[in-house]
Design a protein around this nucleic acid. Structure first.
Lengths: 119, 119
DNA sequence: AACGGTTATATCCGAACAAATATAACGACG
DNA sequence: CGTCGTTATATTTGTTCGGATATAACCGTT
């Protein structure tokens, strides 16, 4: 195989994939992971803590996502047993599943490119 | 085919691809286009103007790229017939060709994902 | 010898973005 | 009814990034 100059230096192949709305970004790996944490932990604040993210940033992201679709992805509740909480709506779970699949294919693409680089 | 929720909203698939060094970014679409402009126009300042980029930013990018490899990608000359100039070294041309090919494959991946989304 | 366009470099400034902080409302539960 | 953890929101602070600006050095060309 041809000698690739880029293969001779220790650079890491990296990339990002996202869905862009008219104004804001709608979905990306950060927002996806946030949704996945919310689904597991049941609250925005716990998800933020788990990701070492400020609550404000997490709330802003959730607000941005919910504002860009008809049916919100995250449904919240203030007050109550655990002080409140949040979870994914069916629409939210569907978006997570679909974008996770896209992102996994992207990861495969990156791996293939890396393999091509060092072959 | 299965109904995709994401297909029902006007979101644009987008993404970025780059090569990351230990500290700085090494190559991305912006740096690639800058190198391509330098190759055609023969100077950093003209390339910057053509891309509506400040000369400082263009020079910083060139400096960053050159600093991360043994043989520089851009060779420059101060003073002279046209006041000076810049051009790609053989290493620079090789990097441009290789990363351009990678980026074209990435564009094809994005197109395929978009097609899958709206099929 | 002056000129012109470029490289090379330092400094300052403004915008954008996220972190930090503060506070109110909420509602089950003890 | 007070407590607690959460949502919801505003305000301030800090940092980072790139733009703007200025200046010096360089060297064919005139």
């Amino acid at each position: 195989m041809k000698e690739l100059l880029l293969a001779s230096v220790p650079f890491r192949f990296d990339g990002r994939l996202w869905l862009q709305g008219p104004d804001d970004r709608f979905m990306g790996i950060g927002r996806l992971q946030l949704l996945e944490h919310i689904a597991v932990l049941g609250s925005i604040s716990q998800a933020a803590r788990a990701m070492n993210m400020s609550y404000k940033r997490a709330w802003d992201l959730v607000s941005s996502m919910n504002a860009q679709v008809r049916t919100p992805l995250v449904q919240t509740q203030t007050g109550g047993r655990r002080g409140g909480g949040a979870g994914l709506t069916p629409a939210g779970e569907q978006v997570v599943a679909e974008f996770r699949a896209m992102h996994d294919r992207f990861a495969a693409f990156l791996a293939a490119e890396t393999a091509r680089l060092y072959s």
